[in-house]
Amino acid sequence: MAKSGPIVIVVFPGVEPLDVAGPAAVFARARALCPDAPDMIFASPEGGTVRADGGLSFADTAALSSLTGPFDLILIAGGTEQGLIAAIHGQLSAWLRQAAPSARRVGSVCGGAFVLARAGLLATRRATTHWSATARLQAMYPDTIVEPDAIFTIDGPVCTSAGVTSGIDLALALVEADHGSQVAANIARQLVVFLRRPGGQSQFSEALRAQAKGGSLLAAALDEIQSHPAHDLCVARLASLCAMSPRTFTRRFTLEIGSPPAAFVATARLDHAKRLLLTTHMPVASIAYASGYGSAEAMNHVFRNRLGVAPSDLRHRLQSAQAPAAD
């Protein structure tokens, strides 16, 4: 890939440090592995030292006014609500509106999506942000197609990612698109992260909800459901793992998790199958067995009832939706 200018990561007072450091670590390693990878610049509205949320600071940032295109990527980080409001109503949105046409890509991490939207860059495009702010983004910018559960989105030259660490996932996806899967895999191994969480994966999974709600008495059952969806997950067996009677287990599970055990198992198996469809090349029949359905026909029936689509069609849709558009 020929260079098209530097990557510009934009910070501002109150910026979230991980929104900056995560993608920067990916891009820095790409530069070390690939001589044609773009350089990286840290910029801010005024330049100089910028104090981030949590007491950290970014020193020697370039003033936005000093930058001239073309740019490979302009990436707007997220931050505190006060910091984002100041950035949106300050010169950042105006600068971004002018600079975006000279950038090969424009993107955001977390609340940085509001800056993109303010600059008019998300109109009619798919986008996401931190799960706690997706409803607000949709309400404020109704012409944006907000995907509230996505880890990241790539819609043509505009990309957005959800909260904090999802900036790493987006950066890995962009590196993979530009330099190949092997380079992205090497970087992921160096950073000890998952290669790569797919853009269509849920921000706030059923497993995370369960971990947040469930007490230690249910830990064995929750771990078995999430780790071994193909095992026998009947109530009697799950209850025995928690040293409870089936009746007590069902009552406690429903109260703490918010759904009966059978419904939770069904959702966990569906999530597991969706994840395998998107992240592997396994045949549908193999995914069905690995996810606890017993047969491809049984999984097909569940997918059509729950999602209105066959597993193979969903795989095609999800892979097409997360693939970066060609330049």
Rank of each mutant, 00 (worst) to 15 (best):
D169R: 03
I168T: 14
A162S: 15
F194Y: 12
T165V: 12
T129E: 01
G200K: 00
G156Y: 15
S132R: 15
F204N: 00
Q182S: 14
P148R: 03
A173K: 12
A171M: 08
A119N: 06
H130A: 11
T165E: 08
E176T: 13
P198L: 06
I168L: 05
G180L: 11
Y141R: 06
L172Y: 08
F204R: 00
S166E: 00
V175K: 10
G180V: 15
F152L: 05
Q138Y: 02
L170T: 10
T160G: 07
M140G: 09
L137M: 02
A119E: 04
Y141S: 06
H179Y: 13
D149A: 09
I168N: 00
V183K: 04
P198F: 04
P148L: 05
F152H: 12
Y141Q: 02
V193I: 14
A127Y: 02
Q182D: 15
S132T: 11
H130R: 09
V158G: 12
G156K: 15
P157F: 09
T160H: 06
V158T: 14
Q190F: 01
I154M: 15
T153D: 03
L172F: 08
A139M: 03
E147A: 07
I151M: 07
A135C: 03
V146H: 05
A173E: 11
A188P: 00
L170H: 08
V146I: 05
V192F: 05
T165A: 14
I145R: 15
I151W: 00
L121R: 03
L170W: 10
R189P: 00
G180W: 10
L137Y: 01
T153W: 03
S181P: 06
A150N: 10
V193N: 04
T165Y: 06
D178T: 07
G180R: 12
L191M: 09
S202N: 12
R136A: 10
R189E: 09
L191P: 00
S132H: 07
T144R: 01
C159R: 09
V183A: 13
S166I: 06
G200I: 08
I154P: 03
A123P: 06
R136C: 02
A184Y: 05
V164C: 07
G156V: 14
Q201L: 01
S166C: 11
A123F: 07
Q138T: 03
A133R: 13
E206P: 08
N186L: 12
I145E: 08
Q138R: 10
E147N: 05
S205G: 12
E147D: 09
M140Y: 06
A188T: 01
G163W: 01
V164Q: 02
Q201T: 02
A123H: 14
I154S: 08
Q190E: 12
S181Y: 08
A177K: 11
S205K: 07
R126L: 09
L122M: 07
A127H: 04
I187P: 00
P157T: 15
Y141T: 05
A162D: 05
A188G: 07
I145K: 13
Q138H: 12
R125A: 14
G200L: 05
S132K: 13
T144Q: 02
I154C: 13
V183E: 10
T134M: 02
L121C: 04
E206L: 15
V175R: 12
G167M: 09
S181M: 11
A207Y: 11
A123W: 01
A207L: 15
P142W: 04
V158C: 14
I187V: 07
L195Q: 11
T134Y: 03
V158W: 13
Q190D: 13
L122D: 04
S181A: 14
V175D: 14
